[in-house]
């Protein structure tokens, strides 16, 4: 997939946004509420019209997509879709029938953890379970490109882990995945690359491990000194520990060395944008 450039809306929700998403990668999109993530993703899906810019997704303009193109796309929207009076299995089976080569129903229900609920009405499910139905419907058509807009909202921790495994196995099969999430650990665990969107613009883009100079940022060494907890920010943590080890002659109490987490980098970026604005 060759990415999109620029898309505008009347509220300028997306303001000159450039993205290049490569085939086969998991691409994360981060950003505060109202940043324009969903708007961007829905333009890519062909569900929102854009006011400007060029978009090409799987070789087509999503605004004028063919049926064939739609059969390559899987979507999990931010807002769950409750589909009336059908059971879980009926719902997923129904959506499978639109596709030329759908996945196996039993298998999908199993991986999203809904096997026991297969015969239950969708309207009677819990929020997280309904969300799983959305995920099942999103992947049932064996999409080449899967859009996930905050897919794990309402998932319990175990379900999230299970979902991560599903996403990884889809990616191993060659599926390209665009993932929006507010869970930074999720993006860090899954994404090959990510972009941070603020105010409809990309403010940072890159590898989760190196985003915003994360890899080269100063490390923090902390330990428990006799007079209380101490912290020291340094470019050379090994040297600091050597000195400490000499000082304590043995174990350093409560020693930790930490690099900024993705969350620290992310929050830093957002703050930077706020002060700039």
């Amino acid at each position: 997939m060759r990415g999109l450039r620029k898309a505008y809306k009347d509220h300028v929700a997306v303001n000159g946004l450039d993205l290049d998403i490569r085939r086969g990668e998991i691409f994360g999109i981060l950003g505060p509420n109202g940043a324009g993530k969903s708007t961007t993703v829905e333009i890519l899906e062909g569900h929102r019209s854009r006011d400007g810019g060029e978009v090409e997704v799987l070789g087509e303009d999503p605004g004028r997509a063919s049926r064939q193109w739609k059969s390559w796309i899987g979507i999990v929207w931010q807002n769950e879709v409750v589909s009336g009076e059908l059971t879980v299995a009926e719902t997923v089976r129904h959506y499978a029938q639109y596709f030329p080569d759908p996945r196996d129903l039993e298998e999908i229900l199993h991986v999203v953890g809904l096997t026991e609920k297969a015969g239950a009405r969708v309207t009677g499910l819990s929020g997280g379970q309904r969300r799983r139905v959305d995920v099942a419907v999103g992947v049932i058509g064996r999409p080449e490109l899967l859009f996930l807009d905050e897919p794990t909202t309402g998932f319990d921790p175990a379900a999230r882990r299970q979902f991560w495994d599903l996403i990884r196995s889809l990616a191993d099969d060659g599926t390209t995945i665009v993932l929006t999430s507010h869970y930074l650990d999720e993006v860090e665990a899954l994404a090959d690359r990510l972009a941070v969107v603020v105010g409809g613009k990309v403010v940072a883009e890159g590898d989760p491990a190196t985003l915003g100079g994360r890899a080269s940022a100063q490390a923090t060494v902390s330990w428990l000194a006799p007079e209380g907890p101490r912290e020291y920010r340094t470019d050379t943590p090994t040297g600091v520990i050597n000195d400490l080890a000499a000082h304590f002659r043995g174990e350093i109490p409560e020693l930790t060395v930490s690099r900024p987490s993705l969350e620290d980098i992310y929050l830093g970026l957002i703050k930077e944008q706020e002060t700039a604005a």
Binding site: E45, G46, H47, K70, S71, I73, I75, V81, Y95, Y98
Partner: peptide, 9 residues
């Protein structure tokens, strides 16, 4: 919206 996303005439 979901139906519109389906490869359906």
């Amino acid at each position: 919206r979901r139906l519109r996303a389906m490869p359906m005439p």
